[in-house]
Design a binder for these strands. Structure first.
Lengths: 228, 228
DNA sequence: CGTCACTTTGATGACCCTCAATACGAGTGG
DNA sequence: CCACTCGTATTGAGGGTCATCAAAGTGACG
Protein backbone atom coordinates (compact mmCIF):
# COMPACT_ATOMS: atom_id res chain seq x y z
CA UNK A 1 0.00 0.00 0.00
CA UNK A 2 1.44 3.26 -1.15
CA UNK A 3 1.67 5.56 1.84
CA UNK A 4 4.20 7.96 0.41
CA UNK A 5 1.74 10.81 0.44
CA UNK A 6 1.41 10.65 4.17
CA UNK A 7 4.52 12.59 4.89
CA UNK A 8 4.99 15.66 2.82
CA UNK A 9 7.50 18.39 3.35
CA UNK A 10 6.84 21.80 4.72
CA UNK A 11 7.22 23.43 1.37
CA UNK A 12 8.28 27.07 1.39
CA UNK A 13 6.01 29.61 -0.27
CA UNK A 14 6.87 30.72 -3.76
CA UNK A 15 7.95 34.07 -2.34
CA UNK A 16 10.81 32.37 -0.52
CA UNK A 17 11.78 30.58 -3.70
CA UNK A 18 11.95 33.84 -5.54
CA UNK A 19 14.17 35.33 -2.85
CA UNK A 20 16.71 32.52 -2.82
CA UNK A 21 18.44 30.90 -5.76
CA UNK A 22 17.28 27.34 -6.13
CA UNK A 23 20.81 25.95 -6.06
CA UNK A 24 21.21 27.25 -2.54
CA UNK A 25 18.11 25.47 -1.41
CA UNK A 26 19.56 21.99 -1.14
CA UNK A 27 19.40 22.44 2.58
CA UNK A 28 18.97 20.23 5.61
CA UNK A 29 17.59 16.75 5.25
CA UNK A 30 14.08 17.77 6.20
CA UNK A 31 13.77 19.78 2.99
CA UNK A 32 13.68 17.17 0.25
CA UNK A 33 14.96 17.83 -3.23
CA UNK A 34 12.78 20.06 -5.34
CA UNK A 35 13.25 21.66 -8.70
CA UNK A 36 11.63 24.33 -10.80
CA UNK A 37 10.44 23.92 -14.35
CA UNK A 38 9.39 26.48 -16.91
CA UNK A 39 6.35 25.84 -19.04
CA UNK A 40 5.29 27.52 -22.25
CA UNK A 41 1.81 28.69 -23.15
CA UNK A 42 -0.77 25.86 -23.05
CA UNK A 43 1.85 23.33 -21.99
CA UNK A 44 0.70 20.51 -19.74
CA UNK A 45 2.11 19.98 -16.27
CA UNK A 46 0.42 16.61 -16.14
CA UNK A 47 -2.41 14.85 -17.94
CA UNK A 48 -5.12 12.38 -17.09
CA UNK A 49 -3.63 8.99 -16.37
CA UNK A 50 -0.13 10.23 -15.56
CA UNK A 51 1.32 8.76 -12.39
CA UNK A 52 1.09 11.25 -9.55
CA UNK A 53 4.69 11.31 -8.43
CA UNK A 54 5.05 14.97 -7.57
CA UNK A 55 3.40 17.76 -5.70
CA UNK A 56 3.49 21.11 -7.46
CA UNK A 57 3.48 24.73 -6.50
CA UNK A 58 2.82 27.62 -8.82
CA UNK A 59 5.72 30.06 -8.60
CA UNK A 60 4.66 32.28 -11.47
CA UNK A 61 1.72 32.16 -13.83
CA UNK A 62 -1.64 30.45 -13.77
CA UNK A 63 -2.54 26.78 -13.97
CA UNK A 64 -5.89 25.31 -15.05
CA UNK A 65 -6.94 21.93 -13.70
CA UNK A 66 -9.66 20.35 -15.77
CA UNK A 67 -11.56 17.18 -16.32
CA UNK A 68 -12.87 16.08 -19.71
CA UNK A 69 -15.61 13.93 -21.13
CA UNK A 70 -14.63 11.75 -24.05
CA UNK A 71 -16.49 13.94 -26.53
CA UNK A 72 -14.46 16.98 -25.57
CA UNK A 73 -16.72 18.63 -23.03
CA UNK A 74 -14.47 20.23 -20.44
CA UNK A 75 -14.98 21.31 -16.86
CA UNK A 76 -12.24 23.40 -15.32
CA UNK A 77 -12.21 22.51 -11.63
CA UNK A 78 -9.57 24.94 -10.41
CA UNK A 79 -7.72 28.04 -11.49
CA UNK A 80 -4.47 28.24 -9.58
CA UNK A 81 -2.29 31.28 -9.07
CA UNK A 82 1.13 31.80 -7.50
CA UNK A 83 1.71 30.33 -4.07
CA UNK A 84 -0.84 27.57 -4.25
CA UNK A 85 -0.13 23.85 -4.23
CA UNK A 86 -1.76 21.44 -6.64
CA UNK A 87 -1.50 17.95 -8.03
CA UNK A 88 -2.90 15.89 -5.16
CA UNK A 89 -4.00 12.47 -6.33
CA UNK A 90 -3.90 8.94 -5.02
CA UNK A 91 -1.82 7.12 -7.62
CA UNK A 92 -2.60 8.56 -11.03
CA UNK A 93 -3.99 11.91 -12.03
CA UNK A 94 -7.65 12.09 -12.97
CA UNK A 95 -7.25 15.61 -14.25
CA UNK A 96 -5.19 17.60 -16.67
CA UNK A 97 -3.15 20.61 -15.53
CA UNK A 98 -2.03 23.16 -18.09
CA UNK A 99 -0.52 26.61 -17.83
CA UNK A 100 -2.21 29.51 -19.57
CA UNK A 101 0.87 31.64 -20.12
CA UNK A 102 4.57 30.96 -19.65
CA UNK A 103 4.85 29.85 -16.06
CA UNK A 104 7.23 28.52 -13.46
CA UNK A 105 6.22 25.52 -11.41
CA UNK A 106 8.02 24.01 -8.43
CA UNK A 107 7.99 20.21 -8.49
CA UNK A 108 8.60 18.15 -5.42
CA UNK A 109 9.05 14.42 -5.64
CA UNK A 110 6.54 12.71 -3.42
CA UNK A 111 8.75 9.74 -2.79
CA UNK A 112 11.61 11.91 -1.60
CA UNK A 113 9.17 14.00 0.38
CA UNK A 114 7.96 10.96 2.31
CA UNK A 115 11.38 10.71 3.95
CA UNK A 116 11.06 14.14 5.48
CA UNK A 117 10.41 14.22 9.22
CA UNK A 118 8.44 17.42 8.85
CA UNK A 119 4.74 16.77 8.73
CA UNK A 120 2.71 18.05 5.84
CA UNK A 121 0.92 20.95 7.44
CA UNK A 122 0.89 23.00 4.29
CA UNK A 123 -0.29 20.16 2.13
CA UNK A 124 -3.11 19.34 4.49
CA UNK A 125 -4.16 22.98 4.58
CA UNK A 126 -4.09 23.09 0.81
CA UNK A 127 -6.24 19.97 0.60
CA UNK A 128 -8.83 21.30 3.04
CA UNK A 129 -8.85 24.54 1.10
CA UNK A 130 -9.34 22.67 -2.16
CA UNK A 131 -12.23 20.68 -0.73
CA UNK A 132 -13.97 23.86 0.36
CA UNK A 133 -13.30 25.47 -2.97
CA UNK A 134 -14.77 22.47 -4.83
CA UNK A 135 -17.89 22.54 -2.66
CA UNK A 136 -18.36 26.20 -3.53
CA UNK A 137 -17.93 25.28 -7.17
CA UNK A 138 -20.56 22.53 -6.87
CA UNK A 139 -23.04 25.00 -5.40
CA UNK A 140 -22.26 27.40 -8.22
CA UNK A 141 -22.59 24.81 -10.98
CA UNK A 142 -25.64 23.14 -9.56
CA UNK A 143 -27.70 26.04 -8.33
CA UNK A 144 -26.58 29.45 -9.51
CA UNK A 145 -27.73 31.46 -12.51
CA UNK A 146 -25.33 32.74 -15.16
CA UNK A 147 -25.14 36.22 -13.59
CA UNK A 148 -24.51 34.77 -10.16
CA UNK A 149 -21.78 32.54 -11.54
CA UNK A 150 -19.90 35.36 -13.23
CA UNK A 151 -20.39 37.58 -10.18
CA UNK A 152 -19.05 34.80 -7.96
CA UNK A 153 -15.94 34.41 -10.05
CA UNK A 154 -15.24 38.14 -10.15
CA UNK A 155 -15.88 38.46 -6.42
CA UNK A 156 -13.52 35.58 -5.73
CA UNK A 157 -10.82 37.18 -7.86
CA UNK A 158 -11.29 40.37 -5.87
CA UNK A 159 -10.71 38.42 -2.66
CA UNK A 160 -11.56 40.02 0.64
CA UNK A 161 -10.54 43.46 -0.55
CA UNK A 162 -12.50 46.02 1.47
CA UNK A 163 -12.55 48.58 -1.34
CA UNK A 164 -15.77 49.56 -3.07
CA UNK A 165 -14.15 49.39 -6.50
CA UNK A 166 -11.19 47.39 -7.78
CA UNK A 167 -9.48 46.77 -11.09
CA UNK A 168 -8.90 43.10 -11.91
CA UNK A 169 -6.72 41.44 -14.50
CA UNK A 170 -8.30 38.24 -15.72
CA UNK A 171 -5.76 35.47 -16.12
CA UNK A 172 -7.99 33.51 -18.50
CA UNK A 173 -9.97 33.85 -21.71
CA UNK A 174 -13.77 33.95 -22.01
CA UNK A 175 -13.73 30.36 -23.14
CA UNK A 176 -11.86 29.29 -20.03
CA UNK A 177 -14.22 31.30 -17.84
CA UNK A 178 -17.07 29.48 -19.55
CA UNK A 179 -15.53 26.06 -18.95
CA UNK A 180 -14.99 26.98 -15.32
CA UNK A 181 -18.52 28.29 -14.76
CA UNK A 182 -20.30 25.58 -16.72
CA UNK A 183 -21.51 28.01 -19.38
CA UNK A 184 -20.72 28.84 -23.02
CA UNK A 185 -18.51 31.63 -24.32
CA UNK A 186 -21.53 33.46 -25.64
CA UNK A 187 -23.34 33.39 -22.34
CA UNK A 188 -20.27 34.64 -20.51
CA UNK A 189 -19.93 37.47 -22.98
CA UNK A 190 -23.59 38.42 -22.73
CA UNK A 191 -23.44 38.27 -18.95
CA UNK A 192 -20.48 40.64 -18.90
CA UNK A 193 -22.60 42.91 -21.06
CA UNK A 194 -25.48 42.82 -18.62
CA UNK A 195 -23.20 43.48 -15.66
CA UNK A 196 -21.84 46.47 -17.56
CA UNK A 197 -25.33 47.80 -18.28
CA UNK A 198 -26.21 47.35 -14.63
CA UNK A 199 -23.29 49.55 -13.71
CA UNK A 200 -21.54 46.82 -11.75
CA UNK A 201 -18.43 46.61 -13.89
CA UNK A 202 -16.47 48.24 -16.68
CA UNK A 203 -14.46 46.23 -19.19
CA UNK A 204 -11.70 48.50 -20.51
CA UNK A 205 -10.02 45.62 -22.34
CA UNK A 206 -10.54 41.92 -22.84
CA UNK A 207 -8.47 40.95 -19.86
CA UNK A 208 -9.28 43.83 -17.54
CA UNK A 209 -12.41 44.22 -15.49
CA UNK A 210 -13.07 47.22 -13.34
CA UNK A 211 -15.46 46.29 -10.56
CA UNK A 212 -17.45 49.41 -9.71
CA UNK A 213 -19.62 48.06 -6.90
CA UNK A 214 -17.95 45.15 -5.17
CA UNK A 215 -20.45 44.85 -2.28
CA UNK A 216 -23.34 44.60 -4.68
CA UNK A 217 -21.42 42.12 -6.82
CA UNK A 218 -20.86 39.98 -3.73
CA UNK A 219 -24.56 40.09 -2.88
CA UNK A 220 -25.38 39.08 -6.43
CA UNK A 221 -22.91 36.20 -6.15
CA UNK A 222 -24.70 34.97 -3.03
CA UNK A 223 -28.14 35.22 -4.57
CA UNK A 224 -29.13 38.16 -2.38
CA UNK A 225 -29.48 40.64 -5.20
CA UNK A 226 -32.10 40.74 -7.90
CA UNK A 227 -30.89 39.38 -11.18
CA UNK A 228 -29.36 41.89 -13.53
CA UNK B 1 -2.00 28.48 14.17
CA UNK B 2 -4.26 25.51 14.66
CA UNK B 3 -2.44 22.41 13.54
CA UNK B 4 -4.57 19.91 15.34
CA UNK B 5 -5.80 18.36 12.15
CA UNK B 6 -2.31 17.32 11.20
CA UNK B 7 -2.29 14.26 13.32
CA UNK B 8 -5.33 12.12 13.10
CA UNK B 9 -5.80 8.63 14.40
CA UNK B 10 -5.90 5.49 12.39
CA UNK B 11 -9.59 5.10 12.85
CA UNK B 12 -10.96 1.57 12.62
CA UNK B 13 -13.58 0.82 10.00
CA UNK B 14 -17.18 0.73 11.06
CA UNK B 15 -17.16 -3.04 10.66
CA UNK B 16 -14.75 -3.34 13.57
CA UNK B 17 -16.99 -1.11 15.63
CA UNK B 18 -19.93 -3.33 14.96
CA UNK B 19 -17.97 -6.38 16.05
CA UNK B 20 -16.80 -4.97 19.35
CA UNK B 21 -18.82 -3.19 22.04
CA UNK B 22 -17.79 0.40 22.22
CA UNK B 23 -17.04 0.23 25.92
CA UNK B 24 -14.30 -2.27 25.23
CA UNK B 25 -12.68 0.00 22.73
CA UNK B 26 -10.95 2.35 25.16
CA UNK B 27 -7.70 0.80 24.08
CA UNK B 28 -4.06 1.81 23.90
CA UNK B 29 -3.01 5.42 23.92
CA UNK B 30 -2.58 5.61 20.18
CA UNK B 31 -6.31 5.19 19.75
CA UNK B 32 -7.70 8.41 21.10
CA UNK B 33 -11.10 8.65 22.74
CA UNK B 34 -14.01 8.27 20.41
CA UNK B 35 -17.67 7.85 20.96
CA UNK B 36 -20.71 6.87 18.98
CA UNK B 37 -23.90 8.88 18.70
CA UNK B 38 -27.28 7.92 17.38
CA UNK B 39 -29.16 10.36 15.19
CA UNK B 40 -32.83 10.40 14.28
CA UNK B 41 -34.30 11.05 10.84
CA UNK B 42 -33.25 14.43 9.40
CA UNK B 43 -31.17 15.23 12.46
CA UNK B 44 -28.08 17.36 11.90
CA UNK B 45 -24.60 16.11 12.71
CA UNK B 46 -23.28 19.63 12.26
CA UNK B 47 -24.43 22.82 10.58
CA UNK B 48 -22.85 25.70 8.73
CA UNK B 49 -20.80 27.79 11.10
CA UNK B 50 -20.33 25.12 13.75
CA UNK B 51 -16.76 24.78 14.98
CA UNK B 52 -15.12 21.76 13.38
CA UNK B 53 -13.90 19.95 16.46
CA UNK B 54 -14.51 16.37 15.40
CA UNK B 55 -13.94 13.98 12.59
CA UNK B 56 -16.85 11.65 11.90
CA UNK B 57 -17.36 8.21 10.50
CA UNK B 58 -20.63 6.75 9.37
CA UNK B 59 -21.21 3.48 11.21
CA UNK B 60 -24.78 2.91 10.04
CA UNK B 61 -27.04 4.95 7.82
CA UNK B 62 -26.51 7.68 5.28
CA UNK B 63 -25.35 11.27 5.71
CA UNK B 64 -25.95 14.17 3.33
CA UNK B 65 -23.47 17.02 3.22
CA UNK B 66 -24.95 20.12 1.64
CA UNK B 67 -24.35 23.77 1.06
CA UNK B 68 -27.12 26.34 0.87
CA UNK B 69 -27.78 29.72 -0.68
CA UNK B 70 -29.57 32.20 1.52
CA UNK B 71 -32.81 31.86 -0.44
CA UNK B 72 -32.95 28.14 0.25
CA UNK B 73 -31.40 26.72 -2.90
CA UNK B 74 -29.49 23.63 -1.85
CA UNK B 75 -26.63 21.69 -3.37
CA UNK B 76 -25.83 18.34 -1.84
CA UNK B 77 -22.09 17.86 -2.25
CA UNK B 78 -21.75 14.35 -0.85
CA UNK B 79 -23.83 11.33 0.03
CA UNK B 80 -21.96 9.27 2.59
CA UNK B 81 -22.54 5.66 3.48
CA UNK B 82 -21.10 3.37 6.16
CA UNK B 83 -17.34 3.28 6.53
CA UNK B 84 -16.60 6.69 5.12
CA UNK B 85 -15.12 9.61 7.02
CA UNK B 86 -16.50 13.11 6.79
CA UNK B 87 -16.42 16.49 8.45
CA UNK B 88 -13.07 17.83 7.30
CA UNK B 89 -12.88 21.59 7.66
CA UNK B 90 -10.32 24.14 8.66
CA UNK B 91 -11.91 25.78 11.70
CA UNK B 92 -15.67 26.00 11.17
CA UNK B 93 -17.94 23.97 8.95
CA UNK B 94 -19.07 25.53 5.70
CA UNK B 95 -21.58 22.78 5.14
CA UNK B 96 -24.47 21.08 6.85
CA UNK B 97 -24.44 17.34 7.51
CA UNK B 98 -27.72 15.56 8.19
CA UNK B 99 -28.72 11.94 8.38
CA UNK B 100 -31.53 10.66 6.20
CA UNK B 101 -32.69 7.83 8.43
CA UNK B 102 -31.80 6.84 11.97
CA UNK B 103 -28.03 6.50 11.90
CA UNK B 104 -25.00 5.84 14.03
CA UNK B 105 -22.02 8.14 13.70
CA UNK B 106 -18.61 7.75 15.30
CA UNK B 107 -17.22 11.04 16.54
CA UNK B 108 -13.56 11.54 17.20
CA UNK B 109 -12.32 14.67 18.90
CA UNK B 110 -9.75 16.33 16.73
CA UNK B 111 -7.88 17.79 19.67
CA UNK B 112 -7.51 14.40 21.32
CA UNK B 113 -6.65 12.88 17.98
CA UNK B 114 -3.74 15.25 17.51
CA UNK B 115 -1.97 13.57 20.42
CA UNK B 116 -1.98 10.23 18.70
CA UNK B 117 1.39 9.09 17.41
CA UNK B 118 -0.30 7.29 14.55
CA UNK B 119 -0.26 9.36 11.43
CA UNK B 120 -3.48 10.05 9.62
CA UNK B 121 -3.23 7.72 6.69
CA UNK B 122 -6.92 7.05 6.58
CA UNK B 123 -7.86 10.69 6.86
CA UNK B 124 -5.52 11.66 4.07
CA UNK B 125 -6.90 8.92 1.87
CA UNK B 126 -10.41 10.08 2.63
CA UNK B 127 -9.51 13.65 1.74
CA UNK B 128 -7.92 12.68 -1.57
CA UNK B 129 -10.95 10.55 -2.30
CA UNK B 130 -13.26 13.44 -1.48
CA UNK B 131 -11.34 15.79 -3.77
CA UNK B 132 -11.65 13.35 -6.64
CA UNK B 133 -15.31 12.83 -5.91
CA UNK B 134 -15.95 16.58 -5.90
CA UNK B 135 -14.16 16.99 -9.22
CA UNK B 136 -16.39 14.32 -10.71
CA UNK B 137 -19.36 16.16 -9.31
CA UNK B 138 -18.18 19.43 -10.86
CA UNK B 139 -17.91 17.77 -14.26
CA UNK B 140 -21.38 16.33 -13.79
CA UNK B 141 -22.96 19.61 -12.69
CA UNK B 142 -21.17 21.75 -15.23
CA UNK B 143 -21.25 19.63 -18.34
CA UNK B 144 -23.59 16.65 -18.21
CA UNK B 145 -27.20 16.35 -19.36
CA UNK B 146 -29.99 15.23 -17.05
CA UNK B 147 -29.87 11.63 -18.34
CA UNK B 148 -26.11 11.50 -17.95
CA UNK B 149 -26.38 12.83 -14.41
CA UNK B 150 -28.90 10.25 -13.30
CA UNK B 151 -26.97 7.50 -15.06
CA UNK B 152 -23.79 8.65 -13.35
CA UNK B 153 -25.39 8.49 -9.95
CA UNK B 154 -26.86 5.04 -10.50
CA UNK B 155 -23.58 3.76 -11.93
CA UNK B 156 -21.71 5.12 -8.94
CA UNK B 157 -24.13 3.42 -6.55
CA UNK B 158 -23.54 0.19 -8.43
CA UNK B 159 -19.80 0.57 -7.85
CA UNK B 160 -17.41 -1.59 -9.83
CA UNK B 161 -19.75 -4.55 -9.80
CA UNK B 162 -18.99 -6.68 -12.85
CA UNK B 163 -22.55 -7.94 -13.18
CA UNK B 164 -24.69 -6.99 -16.14
CA UNK B 165 -27.70 -6.30 -13.93
CA UNK B 166 -27.97 -5.28 -10.31
CA UNK B 167 -30.67 -4.29 -7.86
CA UNK B 168 -30.01 -1.08 -5.96
CA UNK B 169 -31.62 0.39 -2.90
CA UNK B 170 -31.64 4.17 -3.06
CA UNK B 171 -30.81 5.73 0.30
CA UNK B 172 -32.38 9.06 -0.67
CA UNK B 173 -35.59 10.59 -1.99
CA UNK B 174 -36.12 12.05 -5.47
CA UNK B 175 -35.79 15.51 -3.99
CA UNK B 176 -32.41 14.69 -2.54
CA UNK B 177 -31.29 13.13 -5.80
CA UNK B 178 -32.35 16.35 -7.49
CA UNK B 179 -30.39 18.51 -5.05
CA UNK B 180 -27.37 16.29 -5.57
CA UNK B 181 -27.55 16.33 -9.37
CA UNK B 182 -28.42 20.00 -9.75
CA UNK B 183 -31.88 19.25 -11.15
CA UNK B 184 -35.49 19.46 -9.97
CA UNK B 185 -37.63 16.65 -8.60
CA UNK B 186 -39.74 16.66 -11.72
CA UNK B 187 -36.77 16.31 -14.04
CA UNK B 188 -35.37 13.45 -11.96
CA UNK B 189 -38.72 11.70 -12.10
CA UNK B 190 -39.06 12.19 -15.84
CA UNK B 191 -35.51 11.00 -16.39
CA UNK B 192 -36.18 7.81 -14.46
CA UNK B 193 -39.15 7.38 -16.73
CA UNK B 194 -37.05 7.74 -19.86
CA UNK B 195 -34.44 5.31 -18.53
CA UNK B 196 -37.25 2.85 -17.90
CA UNK B 197 -38.62 3.27 -21.40
CA UNK B 198 -35.14 2.78 -22.82
CA UNK B 199 -34.96 -0.55 -21.01
CA UNK B 200 -32.01 0.48 -18.88
CA UNK B 201 -33.72 0.20 -15.52
CA UNK B 202 -36.81 -1.02 -13.71
CA UNK B 203 -38.25 0.77 -10.69
CA UNK B 204 -40.15 -1.81 -8.63
CA UNK B 205 -40.64 0.65 -5.79
CA UNK B 206 -39.73 4.20 -4.95
CA UNK B 207 -36.50 3.25 -3.30
CA UNK B 208 -35.49 0.33 -5.45
CA UNK B 209 -33.92 0.49 -8.87
CA UNK B 210 -33.12 -2.56 -10.89
CA UNK B 211 -30.34 -1.78 -13.33
CA UNK B 212 -30.87 -3.99 -16.36
CA UNK B 213 -27.90 -2.93 -18.46
CA UNK B 214 -25.09 -1.65 -16.28
CA UNK B 215 -22.47 -1.40 -19.06
CA UNK B 216 -24.75 0.74 -21.18
CA UNK B 217 -25.66 2.85 -18.17
CA UNK B 218 -21.96 3.45 -17.55
CA UNK B 219 -21.43 4.48 -21.16
CA UNK B 220 -24.37 6.85 -20.89
CA UNK B 221 -22.86 8.30 -17.72
CA UNK B 222 -19.62 9.00 -19.56
CA UNK B 223 -21.33 10.61 -22.52
CA UNK B 224 -20.49 7.71 -24.83
CA UNK B 225 -24.06 6.65 -25.44
CA UNK B 226 -26.75 8.44 -27.36
CA UNK B 227 -29.18 10.28 -25.15
CA UNK B 228 -32.25 8.36 -24.08
C1' DC C 1 -60.25 6.53 5.81
C1' DG C 2 -58.19 10.72 6.47
C1' DT C 3 -53.67 13.13 6.37
C1' DC C 4 -49.16 13.97 4.91
C1' DA C 5 -44.95 13.39 2.38
C1' DC C 6 -43.40 11.86 -1.68
C1' DT C 7 -43.90 10.92 -6.60
C1' DT C 8 -45.66 11.28 -11.14
C1' DT C 9 -47.58 13.61 -15.08
C1' DG C 10 -48.91 17.61 -17.92
C1' DA C 11 -48.72 22.45 -19.88
C1' DT C 12 -46.10 26.37 -20.39
C1' DG C 13 -42.20 29.19 -20.63
C1' DA C 14 -37.49 30.96 -19.30
C1' DC C 15 -32.84 30.50 -19.54
C1' DC C 16 -29.21 29.18 -21.79
C1' DC C 17 -27.20 26.64 -25.86
C1' DT C 18 -26.42 26.30 -30.79
C1' DC C 19 -25.46 28.16 -35.04
C1' DA C 20 -24.03 32.04 -37.72
C1' DA C 21 -22.15 36.44 -38.79
C1' DT C 22 -19.49 40.28 -37.51
C1' DA C 23 -16.06 42.83 -34.93
C1' DC C 24 -11.77 43.33 -32.64
C1' DG C 25 -6.63 42.95 -31.75
C1' DA C 26 -2.21 41.17 -32.18
C1' DG C 27 1.13 39.43 -35.02
C1' DT C 28 3.08 38.80 -39.76
C1' DG C 29 4.54 39.89 -44.19
C1' DG C 30 4.05 42.61 -48.29
C1' DC D 1 1.63 51.67 -43.68
C1' DC D 2 -1.68 48.55 -45.10
C1' DA D 3 -3.47 43.94 -46.13
C1' DC D 4 -3.90 39.50 -44.33
C1' DT D 5 -4.56 35.98 -41.02
C1' DC D 6 -5.73 33.88 -36.86
C1' DG D 7 -7.54 33.57 -32.34
C1' DT D 8 -10.72 35.76 -29.48
C1' DA D 9 -14.88 38.35 -28.47
C1' DT D 10 -19.33 40.20 -29.43
C1' DT D 11 -23.96 40.23 -31.15
C1' DG D 12 -28.18 38.27 -33.18
C1' DA D 13 -31.83 34.71 -34.32
C1' DG D 14 -33.83 30.52 -33.16
C1' DG D 15 -34.48 26.29 -30.70
C1' DG D 16 -33.97 22.74 -26.90
C1' DT D 17 -33.57 21.34 -22.34
C1' DC D 18 -34.91 21.84 -18.13
C1' DA D 19 -37.53 24.83 -14.53
C1' DT D 20 -41.87 26.36 -12.98
C1' DC D 21 -46.53 25.93 -11.86
C1' DA D 22 -50.39 23.01 -11.22
C1' DA D 23 -52.88 18.80 -10.40
C1' DA D 24 -53.46 14.13 -9.65
C1' DG D 25 -51.62 9.65 -8.04
C1' DT D 26 -49.29 6.63 -4.52
C1' DG D 27 -48.10 4.78 -0.10
C1' DA D 28 -47.28 4.93 4.91
C1' DC D 29 -49.26 5.78 9.14
C1' DG D 30 -52.40 7.20 12.42
Amino acid sequence: MDASFLLLPDMPPAAALRRAPFSSRTGPSDEPAMHVRRYGTRQHVFSTGDPATSIHEVAQGTVLVSRYLSDGRRQIVDIIGPGRLFGFASSTHGCTAEVVMPAMICCLDREAASHSPIVAERTLRAMVHEIEHLRDLALLLGRKTASERVATMLAKLAGDNPAHAILLTLPVTRGEIADYLGLTVETVSRTFGRLKQAGLIEVPSNERVNILDLPRLRRLADGLEWEV
